[in-house]
């Protein structure tokens, strides 16, 4: 097991290297430069060249790349051109914000999807099952930003139940409990929007995994032993049904982090995906490299985690 983990961790290195080379080439192939937005009649082309030179724009690309790798290996991702600040420092608060939002979305979708999926499966072909199935499909079929705008229009604006945008009431002077409530209120709508698709797909997986388990021989055996239906379902079937579900759950992590861009944009949520998007728009090369690297590492670690969970939960699987 330990060997397996080490091997998987080592595998991250070539993949990261590959990602960084591809991303680096792609972002430098984009037309434009970090100061393209500076359309200022009081500025001369010489001014701009001087500024570009100061950020190393004219150095040969391989040199720039090697410089980046050399820094990244030591945990230094360079200086953001736009923020004039260390890339890691710029990212850190956004990583926290993204973490809060994706964790909240994940908890929401797990709490909602797994019970619904189980009920759906145990009452296959019932009215409840039909409604839940159709509801799940509806959740999978609404464009994210459209759902977000509808929530803002109807829930936040017309009904005034929740704030429209942001992470907190600015300069509210709230402390303690009030501050927590304020932040929680700002979290509700983004959580719903971000969690929608995962809830729907998680529910579908739980249902089908559960259905499959119920058909297995050992469940039949358990029933034959005369155990009550409740014990059979919740003690025997559920445990085994949840193994693939947990895998699916950890595979949702990347989607919740990099896929949060639309949600973050609509609700002005200061997260990592929006930071990355803006870095692309501003050609802030060190910033793009930094955000993409962080997101890739998270994806790979969550994939590894998924596989490990699988091994831990399912005694039949042994990794070498």
């Amino acid at each position: 097991m330990r060997k397996y983990i080490i091997r998987r961790l080592l595998l991250i290195i070539p993949v990261l290297l590959g990602i960084s080379i591809i991303i680096f080439s792609l972002i430098h192939a984009m037309p434009g430069d970090p100061f393209a937005h500076l359309i200022d009649p009081n500025m001369t082309p010489e001014d701009k060249d001087r500024m570009l030179e100061a950020v190393g724009y004219f150095d040969p690309l391989p040199v720039q790349y090697l410089r980046w790798v050399a820094g990244a290996v030591q945990g230094e991702f360079g200086h953001s051109i736009r923020f004039k600040e260390d890339v890691l420092k710029v990212m850190w608060p956004r990583i926290q914000n993204t973490f809060v939002l994706s964790l909240s979305a994940m908890i929401f979708s797990t709490l909602l999807a797994i019970p619904l999926g189980i009920i759906s499966a145990t009452k296959q072909y019932s009215v409840f099952d039909y409604i839940a199935t159709v509801a799940a499909f509806i959740g999978l079929s609404i464009p994210v930003f459209f759902f977000g705008l509808m929530l803002i229009k109807f829930v936040a604006f017309d009904l005034g139940l929740f704030p429209i945008a942001g992470m907190q009431t600015v300069a509210s002077g709230y402390t303690g409990w009030q501050l927590l409530v304020d932040k929680a209120r700002h979290l509700v709508l983004p959580t719903l929007v971000l969690g929608l698709a995962s809830t729907a797909s998680l529910m579908r997986y739980t249902r089908s995994s559960m259905l499959e388990c119920v058909k297995q021989d050992y469940i039949r055996t358990a029933r034959a032993k005369g155990l009550s239906e409740r014990v059979v379902i919740y003690k025997h079937a559920l445990r085994n049904a949840l193994i693939p579900v947990i895998t699916i759950l950890s595979m949702q992590i990347p989607r919740l982090i990099s896929g949060a861009l639309l949600t973050e944009t609509i609700f002005v949520w200061p997260g990592l995906a929006r930071l990355s998007f803006q870095a692309v728009m501003n050609r802030d090369y060190p910033m793009i490299m930094g955000t993409v690297t962080v997101m890739s590492i998270v994806v790979m670690l969550s994939n590894l985690f998924a596989d490990l969970m699988y091994a831990v939960l399912d005694p039949r699987i042994r990794y070498q």
Binding site: L26, I27, P254, L262, A273, F277, S296
Partner: peptide, 22 residues
């Protein structure tokens, strides 16, 4: 499979936008 890993790690929208603007 390493290529698959690499592409899977790409943050979708960001890369899509980079490629689209190239």
């Amino acid at each position: 499979m390493r290529i698959v890993d690499i592409v899977m790690c790409f943050p979708f929208f960001v890369i899509a936008i980079v490629i689209a603007s190239i």
